[in-house]
Design a binder for these strands. Structure first.
Lengths: 213, 213
DNA sequence: TAGATTGTTAATCGATTAACAATC
DNA sequence: TAGATTGTTAATCGATTAACAATC
């Protein structure tokens, strides 16, 4: 019934950075990665990395480090990135385009299978990834065919809830929401909301406290 | 010397959402906002909001709530968003374009005064906000004129450090970094790094734990 | 063996939650 | 006065940090 699993938010958010670092190490032919190397890469204390790795369940080699490939695999499993997940993008504006073009999603097993927009000027155009923008009027029908596991919401604030209601009706159970609204969804649907202004707030606070010193 | 200020990260990240909600309330002519109304808006427990407001130092009216306009002002002061800050954007790709077009930054007092790119096809073009893309070769000279308080980094990973080094040399003290690298900067420079894949990692974990139930 | 690093338990710190008095 | 909400102190919970043994 309740949540058995604990979700260590800061640790989860650090995982992709480890993956990124490890990918570079593998490319350089490094077989082992130590916590201190990973820690230096993302500017945290080594003990943070040690604890994060512990979450994945991987055992390392004392005195040597972790096998780079094993650690990548362990992190991917921990995040559920070892299996491919299909996604659709709704809203092919500049933000949506940026997401489609983002390389690191391949690492995450995220695979876009459809892109939708309401703008007649965009419909039919090819976007990054070789997909063509489809009419959002076709959304329900196409979602029935594509059966995406994730819907990425990049539509204007005003229409986000409406689009999501439609997708929930089509059986979509996970949303990555870039529209600046809190979405209303049934309890069996998960939403990850991104608040871009949150990062700016963090920067502002760092500036403030820094200036105060 | 050391840090006197404490930075409550989750609270800081919630602040922009309160502002967004409050702006809507002011538009609707509501004079007071209660913690429960704000809490419902961002789907958190009311006590979270109470504690967050406490950080701003604002005193409310027991039995009634907080004056919407006062609370907006208090949050803006807390974040340092009450004064305008000038910014430049380096890298006018789709992500950069999305940021330029983002409306909520006006709320934050963020004002873009320059946009730079290395792509000859983009230089001279007008972007959202009425600015024209300038040649990144002119970066140092123009930064000397514009004296931006913040530089937003949306360049490819490979050139990010180089661009930042140049800007640090020009006296820029704050960076909002969307390139997927950890930047190396002197201790008197602040960096806010955005890791887009971090949000996807969170969504993936929610999906995983959810499916397990 | 010596050096380096992981594994694991305990201590600390900060954020969240709870409880209730104070106030409009 | 009754109802609602804020203000403030205390309790809880979880993440970070520290310490040191175990291992290659």
């Amino acid at each position: 019934m309740g949540r058995h699993k604990i979700l260590n938010t800061p640790a989860v958010r650090r995982m992709p950075s480890y993956l990124h670092c490890l990918a570079g190490m593998v490319e350089s032919g490094l077989e082992f990665a130590s916590t201190s190397a990973l820690a230096a890469y993302i500017s945290v204390d080594p003990i943070v990395v040690r604890k994060d790795v512990e979450l994945t369940g991987l055992k390392g080699c004392p005195g040597v480090g972790y096998r780079t490939k094993d650690l990548m695999e362990a992190i991917r499993c921990y995040l559920g990135w070892n299996r491919s997940r299909s996604a659709i993008l709704v809203g092919a504006g500049s933000l949506g385009g940026a997401l489609l073009g983002h390389r690191d999603f391949a690492e995450a097993g995220l695979c876009f299978t459809g892109v939708f927009d309401s703008d007649g000027g965009k419909i039919g155009r090819e976007v990054a990834g070789g997909l063509r923008v489809e009419d959002v009027a076709e959304l329900s029908r196409r979602v029935g065919e594509l059966r995406p596991q994730i819907a990425v919401i990049c539509v204007p604030v005003g229409v986000a809830q409406k689009v999501v209601d439609e997708l929930v009706g089509c059986g979509v159970k996970a949303f990555w929401n870039f529209a600046n609204v809190c979405l209303n969804v049934p309890p069996d649907v998960v939403v990850q909301r991104e608040v871009i202004a949150g990062g700016l707030a963090m920067l502002s606070m760092k500036l403030k406290t820094h200036a105060a010193c």
